[in-house]
Design a protein around this nucleic acid. Sequence first.
DNA 1: GAGCCTCGAGTTCC
DNA 2: CTCGAGGCTC
Length: 708
Amino acid sequence: MDKPVDDLSRDEAGRELARLADEIARHDARYHRDDAPEISDAAYDALKRRNAEIEAAFPDLVRADSPSARVGAAPAEGFATVRHRRPMLSLKNAMDADEVREFDAGVRRFFTDLGDAPIAYVAEPKIDGVSLALRYEDGRLVEAATRGDGREGENVTANARTIADIPAALEGAPAVLEVRGEVYMTQEDFAALNARQAERGAKVFANPRNAAAGSLRQLDPSVTAERPLRFFVHGWGEVSEPLAETQTAALDRIGALGLQLNPETRRVEGVEAALAVHADLEARRALLGYDVDGVVYKVDDLSRQARLGFRSTTPRWAVAHKFSAQTATTVLEAIDIQVGRTGALSPVARLRPVTVGGVVVSNATLHNEDYIAGRDSAGNPIREGRDLRVGDTVTVYRAGDVIPKVMDVDLSKRPADAAPWAAPAICPCPLATPTERPEGEAVRRCTGEVACPHQRVEHLKHFVSRNAFDIEGLGTKQIEAFFEQGLVSEPADIFTLEARQTAGEIDLHRRDTKGRPTNAKSVENLFAAIAARRRIPLERLIFALGARHVGETSARLLARAYGDWQTFEAAMRAAEPREGEAWETLLAIDGVGAVMAGALVRFFAEPHNREAVERLVAHLEVEPAAAPAGAGAALSGKTVVFTGSLERMTRAEAKARAEALGAKVAGSVSGKTDLVVAGAEAGSKLKKAEQLGVRVVTEDEWIEIASG
DNA sequence: GAGCCTCGAGTTCC
DNA sequence: CTCGAGGCTC
């Protein structure tokens, strides 16, 4: 049993914080990375709480790698983080009616039992607010959490309690009920709030969503209480009992408990009826009184929702049909070139600042030269094939209400002397390296590779980025400054900073990024943060190396396939392009193809990279990769093959089900196959399974397995 | 060989 | 968030 915090000696507290940091990091990895938590949420929360209590009692012992400081999306200080029991996913967007019809067709293809019957959908306005999850236990509100990165959000319970639409207690609710919805502000309330703010000389908000977000995240709940926040429910997370058989009935039940449902919500039969709701709401958009950016359609039947399941970040049973975006007109003042870490040259539009949807926009990505020329990569016209020229008057919108984009150009306002834009033949870096655009690719690249200072500095930024080394106090700005001052030119240099400082070779105290003297404390903190990262999980290291085509996910695959750094590095060094055992082993990894394998082999063939990696790893202690995920699930680690025609479910459904149980679904039978599900008229695959002695089951037996 | 699904890379603004 | 491209399935 844990000793009361008050009874802990300093030494004991220090030791326990160290233990907790390790343990929590391990559980985080098991949960986030492997999807295979080994302790309950409550036990995990208890660890976090214990850590926080000790930190509160011994603030000077708080570790650089403290679990309370370390979180994915870096929620703001001041709010505890909350792990969502069910991830709060986002929705797939549909930009027009045809994309919605495709969504409907996809849903229909999933089921074999529909015939011509239409799918029933729930259509509801997509409120432009802030997502919030409310957890009720035994009818009492116990926790309110923002969406955050979908896995962890901020605990804003005290603030949520001040919102009139959020009851503190629900009569007759299930033992556990987590409702999800949107906190928003009406346009009228927003205007009045801004008038009040302006009067007081306080911050004026750009739009109702920002006002709602800002109000919900006040550290002082009494401020939130004065803000006119409202809340609509649109779904639920964890529940202790099924709410109903349909989305409609479930929402009705939640509404009957005393929560607000959006009055525009409709149940409709078939996709065309759903589209009619969109047309109706778009026409009445300005009259609703609150900001709405589209309409969400959800499959009404909850058993069908469950069968459809989820893609990695979105449910298959819902789609957000967006309204056409708000636009603004401005002048394209310049087209600059940015260099990415892979050498990709991206044109950026510098715009005369203009307000779009409540935010001032002055930059917008132009993607690549085809985009400027008015074509997509397939040569199809965009902007009806009209090109962009400096001096043009252009229409700007914010894609997904976030990323500014140049939509169209007004040729009637084009200055007579506006010249077509020409892609740069040389990199804008001091080396002026020639650029090239490989046949069939959209992107032009600098050929300077490691020599190009732009690429080097971007490479370093990638190295310290959040999913790589994530060194606190060493962000974009700091890296740029260190690079410019010649203090850091490759990753290994980061780990020698402290030694060089001690030896008097460099002096970090002298100046910060702005040339001001830096205080000793922050330098010390930086050294501590760097030291804390000398121990690094293999997958983070592989990702941080920055080989092309190797992102977070692929790095994880590689880490799991090779297990530890020595094995991985030896294999990469031994591999030759397109032949040999090491190459074959690499390609055999599920998810690794010839392009990625080629990029890795090339990365490790480059002498500069080999040496830089060697210098780096000398400073590190690389943690081996965790065992593969899904341990404990019914079919975990098994490979399943479906053959013949299935009669009680579609292929897609069968596959989704098998994967949910931890299996990998393969297309052909081999020695690695564990189970073959043979439907009617199974052919060669069945024969092969019998030859290899692989276990074969009928569709009925499979359903038995899948439901058990 | 086409079509789906995911991943990687680059980007904006607060 | 979006686009392009890689990987896999049919």
